[in-house]
């Protein structure tokens, strides 16, 4: 099912931006990356359109673009956005409990190394299989699995600490 570049953009841009934002935890960076990649995609659309999984390929380009983004800049941006998130974390009442928990998780995810965060987003946002994660990240399935399990155990450990603390935090 061949489509034009414009059709592809119309259909996928929102999803790509959401994916990139979830992966980078930085909407500005996500915009830059998606835009950069789409400019490249535009130039070689005929070739990409001919692929079986063009969306997957573009997603791979977006992911790679992020991985190779200047590390210093990205590190700074992530710690900044994490600080923002953590500032949101103090509970404002019982009602907010659920959101507090969720936003605390957001902050923990934002603190993961890039590759692990990408693996988490691919699994829990894009619903990718391990094989697809490996394909998008350009690594073996074993590596993808290890990124994922390390991320999950980090998130779980943090959550355990948070849960242990939560009574005094919430009350």
């Amino acid at each position: 099912m061949r489509q034009s570049f414009d059709e592809f953009v119309a259909e996928r841009l929102d999803r790509l931006l959401r994916y990139a934002t979830a992966m980078t935890c930085d909407r500005h960076l996500a915009q830059d990356i998606v835009q950069e990649v789409l400019l490249r995609v535009q130039g070689k659309w005929a070739r990409i359109d001919a692929m079986d999984a063009s969306y997957l390929y573009v997603k791979k380009m977006v992911t790679n673009e992020y991985f190779s983004w200047r590390r210093r800049k990205a590190a700074k941006d992530i710690s900044a956005s994490r600080a923002t998130l953590e500032a949101m974390a103090p509970p404002t009442g019982d009602f907010a409990g659920e959101f507090v928990e969720r936003d605390a998780m957001r902050a923990r995810i934002a603190g993961l190394p890039r590759q692990q965060r990408a693996a988490v987003v691919l699994r829990y946002y894009e619903d990718c299989t391990t094989a697809q994660i490996a394909q998008v990240m350009g690594c073996t399935e074993g590596t993808a699995r290890s990124h994922l399990s390390r991320a999950l155990s980090t998130l779980r450990a943090h959550q355990a600490t948070a849960d242990a603390r939560s009574p005094e935090v919430l009350r």
């Binding site: 929102d14 979830a22 998780m105 995810i109 988490v120 959550q159």
Partner: peptide, 15 residues
């Protein structure tokens, strides 16, 4: 489920 919700919330920030 919590991870899923958190990622979804992050994605909601998309430009």
């Amino acid at each position: 489920i919590l991870i899923r919700q958190a990622v979804e919330a992050e994605a909601d920030q998309a430009p």
